[in-house]
Deep mutational scan, measured.
Amino acid sequence: KFGRVHERAEGPAKILAIGTATPFHWVDQSSYPDYYFRVTNSDHLVDLKEKFRRICNRTMISKRHMFLTEEILQKNPNLCSHNEPSFDVRQDILVSEIPKLGKEAVLMAIDEWAQPKSKITHLVFCTRSGVDMPGADYQLIKLLGLSPSVQRVMMYQQGCFAGGTMLRLAKDLAENNKGARVLVVCAESSAIGFRGPSEDHPDNLIAQALFGDGAAALIIGSDPKMGLERPIFEIVTTAQTFVPNGDCHLALHLREMGLTFHCTKDVPPTIAKNVESCLIKAFEPLGISDWNSIFWILHPGGNAIVDQVESTLGLEPNKLQATRNILREYGNLSSACVLFILDEIRKKSGREGLKTSGDGLDLGVLLSFGPGLTIETVVLR
């Protein structure tokens, strides 16, 4: 008597548009150690500064975009301390800036989509910054002038794996609601975790050397309108798992001094060791076991992770080039990073006149991972 209210779509979910945005301000990685130790009044920690310089040199990052300028840091000195309470200051900045950054990426996506924004039916927003109620999803709806009846899902504090999570959720929403057009937004800022150095917490140096700011937005829907919408990728399958006891290797915690970062040297080999089982589960039903026969979007948690995944799986050097390019130009953008790589690989395919948006290949994989050593596996066509 009370059956399904919403009719299912006929076809699989497809990515119809991609937009990205970054803050205008950026830092050069080669000179960042001098800048970082100067603005945090830590130049007296000579040995720690040299250690940080070595870490920065190993990241293979060229530059990173950041909202925090020297002027902002001078006005808010607690942000430059390692342990002073600064959460309220971070909140005041990020509750406002995260939706604005997301808006810039959304406008780029809508411009490519070339359809009225009134056709957006759902919003899925993800960030690890600016936790608030009502959330960044609500603020973004107002900034864009979208209908208050847009169906919203707000996900805070997920971390680097969440780019894949957003695709998984959007696929379910698009395929189970005929005519749905799902706006996916990942907006991230390193301002939540920026803090001064400490000899007692070397993990913090890794975070300060890796993370950048950026937002990515996608429009996802099934059954694209012929002649009006141009699909870029099809989302074939999605899956999530985590490595048992992985939280002892990688975890982040909200504290009075901001978001703290805990990471062990076992993260790269542990991820590399567990990736292939995810690939087998995803691609065995499709008859694929040659990992060089697919295109790759791999989250660059750090250069060591990229190198070890490449080595463990025997990947050809060009397979992870898009990942390395984004890491070099932006650093680790947390949940937004794989979506930047997705954009990079389709643009490169277009520039080179390849037959598909995925490096000329039919199928590919998007792998994202993060806290708890959670792994998201997304098969794309």
Results as ranks from 00 to 15, higher is better:
1 K>G: 10
2 F>S: 08
2 F>L: 05
3 G>E: 10
3 G>S: 14
4 R>M: 15
5 V>N: 02
6 H>I: 06
7 E>Q: 10
8 R>W: 03
8 R>S: 05
9 A>N: 02
9 A>V: 09
9 A>C: 10
10 E>A: 13
12 P>W: 03
12 P>S: 09
13 A>E: 03
13 A>V: 01
13 A>M: 04
13 A>F: 01
14 K>L: 11
15 I>G: 03
15 I>L: 01
16 L>G: 02
17 A>H: 13
17 A>L: 07
17 A>P: 02
18 I>L: 03
19 G>R: 02
19 G>M: 04
19 G>Y: 00
20 T>H: 05
21 A>G: 04
22 T>Q: 09
24 F>L: 13
24 F>Y: 12
26 W>D: 01
26 W>G: 09
26 W>M: 13
26 W>Q: 01
28 D>Q: 00
28 D>E: 04
30 S>E: 15
33 P>W: 12
34 D>N: 06
37 F>Y: 07
38 R>E: 01
41 N>T: 12
42 S>G: 13
42 S>V: 00
44 H>Q: 09
44 H>P: 00
45 L>F: 10
46 V>A: 07
46 V>L: 07
47 D>K: 00
47 D>M: 14
47 D>R: 08
47 D>H: 14
47 D>Q: 12
48 L>F: 08
48 L>A: 01
48 L>R: 05
49 K>L: 06
49 K>F: 14
49 K>V: 05
51 K>P: 05
51 K>E: 11
51 K>R: 11
52 F>H: 02
55 I>S: 01
56 C>Y: 12
56 C>W: 14
61 I>C: 08
62 S>V: 11
64 R>M: 03
65 H>C: 11
65 H>A: 13
65 H>Q: 04
68 L>A: 06
69 T>C: 01
69 T>V: 04
70 E>W: 09
70 E>A: 06
70 E>K: 02
71 E>S: 09
71 E>R: 08
72 I>T: 07
73 L>S: 12
73 L>I: 15
73 L>K: 09
74 Q>R: 13
74 Q>I: 02
75 K>W: 07
76 N>F: 14
76 N>A: 12
76 N>G: 09
76 N>Q: 08
77 P>C: 01
78 N>M: 01
82 H>Y: 11
82 H>G: 11
83 N>G: 13
83 N>C: 13
83 N>E: 08
86 S>T: 12
86 S>E: 12
87 F>P: 06
87 F>I: 12
88 D>H: 09
90 R>V: 13
90 R>A: 02
92 D>N: 14
93 I>K: 05
93 I>D: 14
94 L>S: 10
96 S>F: 00
97 E>N: 01
98 I>V: 05
100 K>R: 06
100 K>V: 06
101 L>E: 01
104 E>V: 05
105 A>G: 06
107 L>F: 13
107 L>S: 07
108 M>V: 05
110 I>K: 08
110 I>F: 15
110 I>E: 02
111 D>S: 12
112 E>Q: 12
112 E>K: 04
113 W>A: 02
113 W>V: 04
118 S>A: 02
119 K>E: 13
119 K>A: 08
120 I>F: 01
121 T>K: 01
122 H>W: 06
122 H>K: 10
123 L>Q: 01
123 L>C: 05
124 V>D: 08
125 F>T: 13
128 R>A: 15
130 G>H: 09
130 G>K: 04
134 P>K: 04
136 A>T: 10
136 A>H: 00
137 D>Q: 08
138 Y>D: 13
139 Q>C: 05
139 Q>S: 15
139 Q>R: 09
141 I>D: 03
142 K>T: 14
142 K>G: 06
143 L>Q: 13
146 L>A: 03
148 P>V: 04
148 P>S: 07
228 L>K: 08
228 L>G: 05
229 E>G: 04
230 R>M: 10
231 P>Q: 14
231 P>K: 02
232 I>H: 07
232 I>V: 05
233 F>C: 05
233 F>Q: 02
234 E>S: 01
235 I>E: 01
235 I>H: 01
236 V>Q: 11
237 T>W: 05
238 T>H: 12
238 T>P: 05
238 T>G: 12
238 T>C: 12
240 Q>Y: 00
240 Q>W: 04
241 T>K: 12
242 F>V: 13
243 V>N: 14
246 G>E: 14
247 D>L: 10
248 C>G: 13
249 H>C: 14
249 H>L: 13
251 A>F: 13
251 A>P: 15
251 A>C: 09
252 L>D: 15
252 L>P: 15
252 L>Y: 13
253 H>V: 07
254 L>R: 14
254 L>S: 13
256 E>S: 07
256 E>H: 11
259 L>S: 15
261 F>I: 10
262 H>T: 10
262 H>Y: 11
263 C>K: 13
263 C>E: 15
265 K>L: 08
266 D>L: 04
266 D>I: 06
266 D>N: 06
268 P>C: 13
268 P>M: 01
269 P>A: 13
270 T>D: 15
270 T>E: 09
271 I>E: 00
272 A>T: 09
272 A>N: 00
273 K>N: 08
273 K>D: 06
274 N>A: 12
274 N>S: 13
274 N>P: 02
275 V>G: 13
276 E>A: 10
276 E>R: 07
277 S>P: 04
279 L>Q: 02
280 I>Q: 11
281 K>Q: 08
281 K>E: 11
282 A>F: 00
282 A>V: 13
282 A>K: 00
282 A>T: 05
282 A>D: 12
283 F>K: 00
283 F>R: 01
283 F>G: 05
283 F>I: 06
283 F>T: 14
285 P>M: 05
286 L>Y: 11
289 S>L: 05
290 D>W: 01
290 D>M: 14
291 W>D: 00
292 N>E: 00
294 I>W: 04
295 F>T: 05
296 W>N: 00
296 W>T: 07
297 I>L: 06
297 I>Q: 04
298 L>H: 05
298 L>P: 07
299 H>Q: 13
300 P>R: 07
302 G>A: 11
303 N>E: 13
304 A>E: 13
307 D>T: 00
307 D>H: 03
308 Q>Y: 13
308 Q>I: 06
309 V>E: 05
309 V>R: 07
310 E>N: 00
310 E>A: 09
311 S>M: 15
311 S>C: 11
311 S>R: 09
313 L>D: 13
315 L>G: 02
316 E>D: 12
317 P>K: 14
318 N>T: 14
320 L>M: 09
320 L>A: 03
321 Q>P: 07
322 A>I: 13
323 T>W: 02
324 R>K: 07
325 N>H: 06
326 I>V: 10
326 I>K: 07
326 I>S: 07
327 L>S: 10
328 R>I: 06
328 R>P: 06
328 R>A: 10
329 E>F: 00
329 E>K: 12
330 Y>Q: 04
330 Y>K: 15
330 Y>H: 07
330 Y>I: 06
331 G>C: 15
331 G>Y: 01
333 L>G: 14
333 L>T: 09
334 S>R: 13
335 S>W: 02
336 A>E: 10
337 C>K: 13
338 V>R: 12
338 V>K: 13
339 L>S: 07
341 I>W: 06
341 I>A: 12
342 L>G: 10
342 L>P: 01
342 L>D: 03
344 E>S: 10
344 E>V: 05
344 E>I: 00
345 I>A: 06
348 K>L: 06
349 S>T: 03
350 G>L: 13
350 G>A: 15
351 R>I: 09
352 E>S: 10
354 L>I: 10
355 K>F: 01
356 T>A: 06
356 T>E: 01
356 T>S: 01
356 T>R: 03
358 G>C: 04
359 D>T: 04
360 G>E: 02
361 L>S: 12
361 L>R: 11
362 D>C: 00
364 G>L: 01
364 G>F: 01
364 G>Q: 01
366 L>Y: 06
367 L>P: 15
367 L>R: 15
368 S>M: 01
369 F>N: 15
370 G>P: 05
370 G>K: 15
371 P>L: 03
372 G>N: 02
372 G>Y: 03
374 T>L: 13
374 T>E: 13
374 T>V: 05
374 T>P: 15
376 E>S: 05
376 E>V: 01
376 E>Q: 03
377 T>S: 08
377 T>N: 06
377 T>C: 00
378 V>N: 15
378 V>T: 15
378 V>P: 15
378 V>K: 15
379 V>M: 13
379 V>G: 15
380 L>N: 15
381 R>E: 07
381 R>C: 01
